[in-house]
């Protein structure tokens, strides 16, 4: 059974069509990428799935329940880490629980076991500005995870990081994914990143944006470090480049 289903989404922003008939699905424990050039409506699509925007046509459903235009159902991590500068990491991470009405103490208790898993030990009492970019991204991801443990939307979470930090974060992310079994929908414009991380890739192209291709990456997990140097990897890349 599909966890998240997006069907026939059409959206226009003040007369300008942005998305046309977008249909896609995310199954349990899958990591699916949406790959496309900047400005093809990827972020708009996430705003719709998260319920911030209402589409003119189409439906978003989670485990069979219609959630079109209802915020607060799936976790959403935006491009910037958006950690609140005036809250400690611990309190930033517990924010989703506080919003659901939990007490501060309880929320802190609930988030604390995850710090180790996410490689954030010792940052509990620190403020975001005291952390490096990679660490902040981890904290933002943990916060996303604390909101919902089923489905997460990640909008280019690693795009602001430098190349070295980025590949380190990729490895870390695949590692964490194996442990926490999150189903993730992932936006990226980085082809390598998409092939490296995903089970499936949707290509979103054109103006208005449309899903033009679905590519299944057969490579099993956990993936080898050298996966991105193999012949198969290049073959996938060639196929994607032809289509974009």
């Amino acid at each position: 059974m599909a966890e998240l289903e997006v069907s026939g989404i059409t959206f226009a922003y003040e007369e300008t069509p942005v998305l046309e008939d977008v249909t896609l699905a995310l199954h349990e424990h899958e990591l699916v990428s949406i790959l496309g050039a900047s400005g093809c409506g990827k972020t708009t699509l996430f705003h719709i799935i998260s319920g911030l925007h209402k589409p003119q046509q189409g439906k978003v459903s989670l485990n069979g329940k219609d959630i079109t235009g209802c915020p607060g159902q799936v976790s959403y991590m935006m491009q910037k880490d958006l950690l609140l500068p005036y809250r400690t990491i611990e309190d930033n991470v517990s924010l989703p629980l506080l919003l659901k009405g939990e007490k501060k103490k309880e929320a802190r208790k609930k988030v604390s076991p995850y710090f180790e898993e996410f490689g954030l030990e010792g940052t509990q009492k620190k403020y975001p500005r005291q952390l490096s970019g990679g660490m902040r991204q981890r904290a933002a991801l943990l916060r996303t995870y604390m909101f919902s443990k089923d489905v997460a939307l990640l909008d280019e979470p690693f795009s602001a990081l430098d190349t070295l930090t980025k590949s380190e974060m990729h490895r870390w992310y695949l590692d964490v994914m194996d442990k926490i079994h999150l189903s993730t929908l992932f936006i990226t414009h980085d082809i390598d990143e998409a092939i490296l991380l995903s089970d499936r890739i949707y290509l979103l192209t054109g103006k208005p944006g449309r899903v033009t291709e679905e590519i299944v990456i057969e490579e099993p997990r956990p993936r080898k470090r050298e996966f991105n140097l193999t012949e198969e990897f290049l073959e996938y890349k060639r196929r994607i480049l032809e289509r974009l």
């Binding site: 998260s50 915020p71 607060g72 159902q73 935006m78 609140l84 809250r87 924010l95 919003l99 909101f147």
Partner: peptide, 23 residues
């Protein structure tokens, strides 16, 4: 963006005020 993020978590206007605008 921060306000959008909190809205996506289902925050009410009062909560957005308390956690983002006021501090």
């Amino acid at each position: 963006d921060t306000i959008s993020l909190l809205r996506s978590m289902g925050a009410s206007r009062a909560q957005i005020f308390r956690y983002v605008k006021f501090p």
